[in-house]
Design a protein around this nucleic acid. Structure first.
Lengths: 195, 195
DNA sequence: TGTTTTATTGATTGACGAGTCAATTAAGAA
DNA sequence: TTCTTAATTGACTCGTCAATCAATAAAACA
């Protein structure tokens, strides 16, 4: 019983189902059928709209990154004080929307998948560049030339906390993660402004 | 033409081939045949000695971790000054033997695989506990109660630098990685001893 | 010498899964 | 009403791959 204008709805549903399924499985080894079943459609339809599993995965990753970007932009809106902005960036990284077990697991799997897929790698680099330049932008007034180095370390630290979160059995430790990163930033900024 | 006492040799060869193949593929989606071919034997032999693909993967991971542990022990032998020991630990993490693209890729894939395999997860936790307690042991005399927290952050930072290394296109940036971690440790120790 | 044990493989099985396709349904256009 | 077009699926094809097995070859042993 075809209702018209289904395409965008189906795409969204399928992408959401993909993320959920990957998150639940903890692996990219999920079948189109599983994903389609979770989305409540046939596997043929998933192929119809996305063409291939790879393209569906790519769309899913794009969504994860876009969601994150949106959230970051909102958190930064209006903030002008560099320290406050830095805190907002870090908090966004560990905000519930992105820092749920399922999403983290999916994220991690995409991260590894970038070893094999140029398109995925490009997407990932894009996100990383954005985070990096945000950090540098707000670090510069505080520590000058050291901004690059500190941003680099901060980025790596955030990635590390993510990967650890994925393997944590107990609940989300977002607060602890934010504390770790902010503690590092405070140290680095104090040392940087003293110099 | 069976020569006796082949078992340990075949096991070693197959494990090495597994790591190499996973590293080259950047994924756990490698077939037993590929691995066996690289090892110069039939896939049936791989099954004969390891029973299943999962068990072979597990053995490979065990080897990666064991190699790392050995190297760490050697680097620490004789060192008594806490600062020097900390540096030795960090350097080991990024030493050529463990920090080659292939090995890092394999490591990363095992890391993610721990989401699905309890046995893998246990192995990983073991390694992590060891690194953590090594760090704490040498941080304690320098910063007292803050040792736990700093060790935690250091561990996450190392993981983050690993995951980033895996996706770096250019050559190994071991020196830069060591610098990042040591810079953080110097900051944290200075602040900790001041307190 | 014949028998057992270890090493080894080619061929086969059985399952599973991506992608294709022809067929069906209904909404809108002519 | 008739035609076109979007939505949707069940059934099918074609590969691939883990795992098994029966067979072979050569040590060691009796």
């Amino acid at each position: 019983m075809p209702k018209l204008g289904m395409e965008p709805i189906r795409r969204q549903t399928l992408v959401a189902a993909t993320i959920a399924e990957i998150g639940a499985a903890g692996s990219l080894e999920v079948t189109m059928s599983q994903i389609a079943r979770r989305a409540g459609v046939s596997s043929a339809l998933a192929h119809h709209y996305f063409g291939s599993k790879d393209k569906l995965f790519l769309a899913a990753m794009r969504t994860v990154l876009t969601d994150f970007g949106t959230e970051a932009r909102e958190a930064l809106a209006g903030q002008t004080d560099p320290q406050a902005r830095l805190r907002a960036i870090v908090q966004t990284c560990f905000a519930p929307a992105s820092f749920r077990p399922g999403v983290v697991a999916a994220w991690l799997n995409f991260y590894v998948h970038a070893l094999n897929s140029d398109a995925t790698l490009r997407l990932l680099r894009l996100y990383r560049r954005r985070l990096h330049s945000n950090l540098v932008h707000d670090l510069r007034p505080l520590v000058g030339a050291q901004a690059e180095e500190i941003a680099e370390t901060t980025g790596a630290l955030i990635d590390g906390l993510y990967i650890r979160q994925a393997l944590k059995s107990d609940g989300p430790l977002a607060d602890a993660a934010v504390r770790h990163v902010m503690a590092y930033l405070d140290l680095a900024i104090a040392a940087g402004s003293r110099a």
